Simulated scan of single mutants.
Amino acid sequence: MPEPHLRAADSDRAAVAEALGEHMSAGRLTVAEFDERLGRAYAAKTYGELDELTSDLPPLSRSTPVPVAPAQPAHVGACGPASHWAGGWELNHAWRAWLTTSLIVLTVWGVTSLANWQFIYFWPVWVIGPWGAVLLAQTLTGRGDDDDDRTCGPHRHLSA
């Protein structure tokens, strides 16, 4: 990170929030610790304040193997329009991740607002909004058709 006294940008705070989420998913942080650090991340003004939030955590390794989805997810029998709309396993998983993150940031915002006895700036919109818009666009444009081929089998191509 740059010098600790320099002011951080919103993108820097969002990057730290994402890293904290990955550490929580890996089991390094409890939900309470994540909530506390996430609130501090979005309140941080300098790189030094952001650096404190991850200083006791190992660096995130991008070379860590990503768990592979099972060959046939739970919705195997769901062929046809419903499975096309769902957009496959990865898209459903992305929506669940978005919902979980949305609930966490809304909770942090709500608790912070209640603690101040007034509603503060609604910063969760910058976490929830763009991510939700991208997922909605992917869902509506049918991203994940390849996943449907995997789950519905070769007979799907015969009806086309």
Rank of each mutant, 00 (worst) to 15 (best):
F34G: 01
L60C: 02
L103H: 12
D149H: 15
A94V: 04
T112Q: 15
V68I: 15
V108N: 03
A43D: 09
F34D: 05
E18S: 09
M1W: 07
Q72H: 15
A69L: 00
V111Y: 07
A32I: 10
V125I: 15
L140Y: 01
E36G: 01
T141N: 14
P59D: 13
W109C: 05
P2I: 09
V31P: 03
A41Q: 05
G48L: 04
R37T: 01
G88P: 08
A160I: 05
C152I: 06
L91N: 10
A97E: 10
I128M: 00
G110R: 11
L29F: 00
K45F: 15
R96Q: 13
A115K: 13
W126E: 07
H93P: 04
A94W: 03
S61T: 12
T101V: 06
T101P: 05
V134S: 15
A15M: 05
T151H: 06
L135A: 03
A97W: 07
E22G: 07
P4H: 04
T64M: 10
L20Q: 05
L140C: 13
L99Y: 03
L135C: 00
D146Y: 13
H84Q: 11
P73L: 01
A15C: 07
R156I: 01
S55P: 00
K45E: 13
S102L: 10
G77A: 04
F122D: 06
H5P: 06
F34M: 07
L114W: 08
D148E: 10
